[in-house]
Design a protein around this nucleic acid. Sequence first.
DNA 1: TCGGGTCTGTATGATTTCGAACACTACTGC
DNA 2: GCAGTAGTGTTCGAAATCATACAGACCCGA
Lengths: 273, 273
Amino acid sequence: MSAITQDGRCVALPSLYSQETESHRCRGAGKNVADSDAHESIANLILLSLPRATLRRLQPDLELVSTARGEVVDRADQPVNYLHFVNRGLISLVKSMEDGRTVEIGVVGIEGVTQPGTIFGISRAPLDTVVQVPGSAFRIKHGIMKDCLAKDQELREALEKYERFALLAFAQTAACNRLHHLEERCCRWLLIAHDNALSDTFQLTHEFLAMMLGVQRSGVSIAASRLQKAGLIQYRRGQVTIVNRSGLEDATCECYATMRTEFRKLFGPPKSA
Amino acid sequence: MSAITQDGRCVALPSLYSQETESHRCRGAGKNVADSDAHESIANLILLSLPRATLRRLQPDLELVSTARGEVVDRADQPVNYLHFVNRGLISLVKSMEDGRTVEIGVVGIEGVTQPGTIFGISRAPLDTVVQVPGSAFRIKHGIMKDCLAKDQELREALEKYERFALLAFAQTAACNRLHHLEERCCRWLLIAHDNALSDTFQLTHEFLAMMLGVQRSGVSIAASRLQKAGLIQYRRGQVTIVNRSGLEDATCECYATMRTEFRKLFGPPKSA
DNA sequence: TCGGGTCTGTATGATTTCGAACACTACTGC
DNA sequence: GCAGTAGTGTTCGAAATCATACAGACCCGA
């Protein structure tokens, strides 16, 4: 599976979404695929999976926007104006408690779209939806998307399949957050972020990561510095670089691999290599 | 909101699903509403919420079954044969990890139905689905349900609304399991079980509860014995009795109240008292 | 260049939960 | 009545994480 750029280039996709068994390709640190792309090519896997005709119908209504770290895309219980097909970066679904502590329930990466459920049922966001790793997304008005869906069986099926994956990932994350150690969970999160950042370096602070994992910031700092000492990552002031991806995969819990397996089961082996 | 029995009696519903602000009605310990009911009346809130015509159409295909503790209703990744409208008792959606440890992701009580998502999308169970508190359920063949849904907008909307609630509850549970203390979580679980058992006494072992909360059995024993000493519950060999419901509500975390609020927002205040 | 804010490193004791073990008790089936 | 199993009470040291604090490092804008 790979992303096809507008000019026909073929970009290898990162591990969670790729079919290679051992994919430890590290992209040049700091290189940011789309930094200078005015017309960013489509990397979102839902959009890429659609038949050409379907995609063409959607395209006039898709608007490329860049997403900034911390940006609140949707707020829990508020109406959803746009759906975001993530093209690069990571968007988190976050539950906030009364005392202000937070936990990430799930993420939307380049495999997905925000608020798929609002298309079928109630059109209010169930959770806070926040940009974790900045990047870009194709957004589409909620109402337009709803109309498109009514007319297009393929699109509907793609969303249903994605919802299925999202639910499985939520469950895995919930269990992981309960049962696994902080350091393992840090690794899991970094791997997923890496998969979606389309770059080995991306913005991320300990503070943010702590909020996602539902732990104290100081705990993340300790875990992160251990990972750094082990040569797996490098970071400085809100910027992480994945140095040794396969090392991270060894250091994480089963959950990352399980999600990858589920992803493949659902989205299947590609037609060919 | 209340359940209407076949002979017209009106049964007050327990707290999560009721509209009363402070509902500490404790039903006689040990009395089990339906123990001797051959034709158990409908208590499931989805079924009760349907228009009479819709319900009548469904009824020939609804089969009342009793659910035994530990019974596996559906297994993760296996095809779903029946949907279960829970009528009494509690069914858990459980994630099992490789080492055998488990965490409950969500529950289906009398407000819900198992596997609603399989009606819209992929028809395999996402999670292990296990009876936690024995009771009864109206089951319907998956295929028949799918057909009914295609023809019936009201039914579809009822399921979509329930799915929304389920997702919110999953998120709350996930966050709670990460952030709140074992004893508080025990209370939350007992309250929800109480709401669905339709009796103050129900079957439950420490072992089961530990698996649901993703903790050690000994931890549950300690918490449970504290709750017993505080006069909130009583138990003996796999059987719990809720003694002081309002005490439990005081001892639990915010999560129970939040779920109740969400439930009311979605299913609204009743037409009248 | 000088604040001021943000981010990280680290320390501390307190608390919670783990992990494992063992004894005891109540129920079940024979 | 007895053996076997299931369920509970309890212990204990170990480990993880909390909660809080503070200092230093880096970055930005005035």
